[in-house]
């Protein structure tokens, strides 16, 4: 049997990779991919904790399903934003969208 810690370590690695991508990459689509990684790390945690603490219930899995749906919605909205950003700036570099600052 795989231990709970193994799941948590995998999930922590995923989360850290997501953070790193968000901080390091300039490309908006790459940043979105980092966000997806963080979401997946979270849903992995939900499923793992559900399995090891209350095996008879499925609430952890239900949360994961919600997170996946949420991620899909988010991707739709985010890509719409990316499209309009590209229209305005001819570019999908996060640093170039600075008009709000002024």
């Amino acid at each position: 049997m795989i231990k709970l810690e193994t799941f948590l370590i995998v999930s922590a690695i995923l989360f850290s990779l997501g953070i790193y991508i968000i901080i390091a990459r300039k490309n908006v689509i790459a940043i979105l991919m980092g966000v997806e990684l963080i979401l997946n790390a979270a849903s992995l945690n939900f499923v793992a904790f559900n399995k090891y603490s209350v095996p008879t219930s499925f609430s952890g899995q239900m949360f994961s399903v919600f997170i996946i749906v949420l991620a899909a919605c988010e991707a739709v909205v985010a890509f719409a934003i990316v499209m309009s950003m590209y229209k305005n700036f001819k570019d999908i570099n996060a640093d170039s969208a600075t008009t709000m600052k002024e």
Partner: peptide, 12 residues
């Protein structure tokens, strides 16, 4: 700075 990544960096 106005750069979202700087803020996220500071946050984490």
């Amino acid at each position: 700075t106005g750069y979202i990544q700087d803020y996220v960096y500071v946050l984490f």
